[in-house]
C-alpha cells in the first residue's frame, strides 16, 4: 500500500495552508474512499483545534515593573535629561540658585586683596592690622584678607574676613569680635549685614 505516506504528507500541507489545488482534490477524494486516512485526518484536525483553543494565560500584573526594576542602570546623562524635562520648575530654581552661588563665589574671590577700614591709631605691618598698646580706636574695624592684632582698645565691633584675630591680654573690644573664614560664614555675614541695614532704616 503506497497510499498512507503520501496522503499523510498532503494532510500536513493542508494543515499548513500550503497545499496545491490538485493535491487538495486528490486528498479529498482519497479520504472519501479510505477509512484509515479519513480517521487519521480527523484526528489531526482535532489535535490542531485542541492546541489552537488553549486559553490565553496572562503574565502577572506587575510584569513590566519587575522587568524594569531588574535592568542594569542606564546612562546617567539620559537620566538627568529626563529628570530635568520632567521637573521644569525645580530645574529653573536650581539654575537660579547656581547663578546666585557662582556670582557669590565670584565676589568672594574678587575681594582677595588685603583691605581694612581706615581709622585713626591703626598700624599696618605685613597684612596685619595692629591696634597698638595704650591706644583707643573709635568705631567698628573690618579687615579683609589679613589679620588683626589687638593690644589696645577698640570701641566698636571687630570683623575679620579671611584672616585671624589675636587678642592680647591687655587688649579690649567693647563690641563683638567675629572671624569670617568660610564662604558660608561670609554669606551669612552678608545676610546679617543686610538685615541690620534694614532694621537701621526701619528704626530711623
Amino acid at each position: 500500500m503506497e497510499c498512507p505516506k503520501k496522503m499523510v504528507e498532503l494532510m500536513h500541507d493542508y494543515l499548513d495552508g500550503e497545499i496545491r489545488k490538485e493535491d487538495e482534490q486528490l486528498l479529498r477524494k482519497h479520504i472519501h474512499e479510505c477509512k484509515k486516512c479519513s480517521d487519521h485526518f480527523y484526528r489531526l484536525k482535532k489535535t490542531v483545534s485542541f492546541i489552537e483553543n488553549l486559553s490565553h494565560i496572562a503574565p502577572s500584573s506587575d510584569f513590566t515593573k519587575k522587568v524594569m526594576a531588574n535592568l542594569p542602570k542606564e546612562k546617567r546623562r539620559i537620566r538627568w535629561q529626563r529628570w530635568f524635562t520632567n521637573h521644569p520648575f525645580i530645574t529653573a530654581a536650581s539654575l537660579f540658585l547656581l547663578l546666585i552661588t557662582s556670582s557669590l563665589w565670584a565676589t568672594w574671590h574678587e575681594n582677595e586683596q588685603f583691605s581694612f577700614s581706615k581709622q585713626e591709631n591703626l598700624i599696618v605691618k605685613n597684612n596685619t592690622v595692629i591696634v597698638p598698646k595704650g591706644k583707643v580706636v573709635e568705631g567698628d574695624i573690618i579687615v579683609r584678607n589679613g589679620n588683626i592684632k589687638i593690644e589696645g582698645e577698640v570701641h566698636g565691633d571687630v570683623t575679620v574676613i579671611n584672616g585671624k584675630k589675636y587678642l592680647a591680654s591687655a587688649g579690649e573690644v567693647t563690641g563683638e569680635i567675629e572671624e569670617v573664614n568660610e564662604v558660608f560664614d561670609w554669606i551669612w555675614y552678608n545676610i546679617k549685614r543686610v538685615g541690620q541695614n534694614i532694621t537701621e532704616i526701619l528704626v530711623k
Binding site: 499523510v8 500536513h12 484526528r43 489531526l44 482535532k46 489535535t47 490542531v48
Partner: peptide, 11 residues
C-alpha cells in the same frame, strides 16, 4: 503534529 495526534487524537 503527528506526535500530538497520538496523545490527543483519541480524546
Amino acid at each position: 503534529r503527528e506526535a500530538l495526534r497520538k496523545y490527543l487524537g483519541d480524546l
